[in-house]
Nucleic acid binder design. Structure first.
Lengths: 234, 234
DNA sequence: CACACATTGTAACAAAGTGTCACACAATTC
DNA sequence: GAATTGTGTGACACTTTGTTACAATGTGTG
């Protein structure tokens, strides 16, 4: 679940690739046509030939990996500014599924490599993007490996809240484009456990739920306490 | 737990930074003095000012993050060729503790940035290194989020085996420089669960244990089946 | 627009895998 | 040789999962 720039506060990657800097780069000209996807549509599957890299322009995309018997682990939720498939070799290393109607900008892999060769400043920004992704993945390793279900849910909501703040949105009103099942697969839990913990937070007065897809944070301090891995207080 | 080059089969990073390519780079000259560390010694702690980046030349280093109440999640075990602290901003994002007597090569962060600016080929190799780390972290997200204890232990042993193969060592005889506690913190388990699963694998004839720090894989097929998330067979 | 169906979410109860606690033994360090 | 650390095992507890049932919401069709 990432906005590009989280670690280093650089401009969203769309500013890097689609802004003035790139539009004037000849190699990119054929790659700036947008594609729209419906909810539930897959952009690509893990193992497919990696022919394009996609930038999320609008909407939310969920990227996930699957075990051989079909268990799904969501790796992250990708908001505008994220790149899908960047850094993959010949084949995609994960699958990407659209959660809400989305607009993506595809780049052919070869074209992006040419851009990077021509523009060292873009290479630097892409490196920053990948490092931010790595830092986020490592934070999530700590969450998955050591946090309880309550701590996971609270951390998840706080992450969405911080993201809203970075995008100048209300940090206390969170839109959830993903289902309980998506959240469960992101946090290494089951649907029932996610639902029980949402109910627990609601019953405790820490959050309020509007139509199951909007979370209003009523008590940010207690939510932070719940996430913080100290003594639980509700 | 990483050898550099896992995703893209490039030369280990030490070939990139310490080999012919770099020795001829003026900026690097002050950074090539080696430092040795004893087992259990910390290279740095999470939150410390990020003044150096270290390359592991010999030995094994464990990098980890900690929750506010002291729960530890090992992020990876770093073998020769790994870089510690690369991609961190002003402060270290994790702690690094030496598991076996180790030799590290420190680089000042500023010096490395200068090298990268002067040598686009090195920037490309560092990008590959970071992408390999990201791919590995994502694989571990799947392991932590969705695999059972048995599957985790089996996957861990297979990872060490693959690593041995990449380093032209015996893939069926694994040296474990880390304790059961380190393995537990890497896999999101407790010491007891790790110990019970080692015993299970041993009792089933899949592995053999010599002095608790050497694992001999007796039945690679069954170990792969155990890790593979299909029906368990022992 | 109403209805049927599919999907998603929640609640209650049972089961199980892992954690916790305690202890014994082995290996390492001082 | 004593102290410390690491490992393995057993018994019990508990958090989460699994199952079943039902409620709520969203979507498609006539």
């Amino acid at each position: 679940m990432r906005i590009a720039s989280q670690a280093n506060h650089l401009a969203p990657i769309s500013g890097i690739l689609a802004g003035d800097n790139v539009q004037n780069t000849p190699s990119a000209s054929a790659e700036r046509s947008l594609r729209t996807f419906s909810a539930k549509e897959h952009v690509f599957f893990e193992g497919d030939d990696r022919d394009s890299i996609y930038e999320v322009v609008d909407g939310v995309v969920c990227v996930y990996k699957v075990t051989s018997d079909g268990r799904r682990q969501v790796i992250s939720f990708c908001y505008p500014g994220s790149l899908l498939g960047f850094g993959h070799a010949d084949r995609y290393l994960y699958s990407a599924e659209v959660l809400s109607p989305a607009t993506l900008r595809p780049y052919s892999a070869g074209a992006l490599e040419k851009i990077v060769a021509e523009r060292p400043d873009l290479a630097h920004s892409l490196m920053s993007f990948v490092m931010a992704e790595l830092a986020a993945a490592r934070d999530q390793l700590l969450t998955l490996g050591r946090k309880s279900a309550s701590e996971k849910i609270a951390s998840f909501l706080l992450e969405l809240s911080r993201q809203n703040e970075e995008m100048s949105k209300d940090p206390e009103t969170l839109q959830l484009p993903m289902t309980r099942s998506d959240i469960a697969d992101y946090l290494g839990l089951t649907i029932e456990t996610v639902s029980r913990n949402f109910t627990k937070l609601k019953t405790s007065g820490i959050i309020d739920l509007h139509q199951n897809t909007t979370v209003v944070i009523c008590d940010m301090d207690r939510l932070e306490e719940t996430a913080s891995c100290d003594e639980e207080r509700f």
